[in-house]
Computed example of a mutant assay.
Amino acid sequence: MLTFSPDGATLASAGSDGAVRLWTVRPSELLRRLCVNTGEPITPARRNQYLQNLPSTASCG
C-alpha cells in the first residue's frame, strides 16, 4: 500500500512484512520517474488510485 501525506511531501509504504516506511519525496519528480520507468503514461484511473494527493495538473507529458 502507498499513500501520500496531505502536504504531498511524504510517501508512506506498507509491505507484506508489516513494515511501514516513510519517504520524503517531491511528488512531481516521483510522477516523472514513474512515467519513465513504466514506459507509458499513467492513466487517469491509476493516477487517482495511487497518486491521489498530486495536483490534478500533474501528468507524464
Rank of each mutant, 00 (worst) to 15 (best):
L2I: 12
L2G: 01
T3G: 01
S5I: 01
S5K: 01
S5F: 07
S5D: 10
S5E: 02
P6V: 05
G8Q: 00
G8K: 02
G8D: 04
A9I: 07
T10P: 02
T10W: 11
L11E: 05
A12C: 03
S13C: 10
S13H: 02
S13T: 15
A14M: 13
G15S: 10
G15N: 08
G15F: 02
S16F: 08
D17Y: 03
D17C: 05
D17Q: 01
D17V: 06
G18K: 08
A19Q: 12
A19W: 01
A19S: 06
A19L: 15
V20Y: 05
V20K: 08
R21Y: 09
R21P: 01
R21A: 11
R21V: 14
L22Q: 11
L22Y: 08
L22C: 00
P27R: 03
S28I: 11
S28F: 09
E29F: 12
E29L: 15
L30D: 03
R33I: 09
L34C: 10
L34S: 02
C35G: 05
V36Q: 13
N37S: 13
G39E: 03
E40P: 00
P41L: 02
P41A: 14
P41Q: 07
I42V: 15
I42P: 01
I42L: 06
P44I: 04
A45Q: 15
R47V: 00
N48R: 15
Q49C: 06
Y50H: 11
Y50R: 12
L51K: 02
L51W: 09
L51T: 04
Q52Y: 11
Q52D: 11
Q52C: 04
Q52K: 15
L54P: 03
S56W: 01
T57G: 04
A58T: 11
G61R: 13
G61E: 12
G61M: 06
G61P: 14
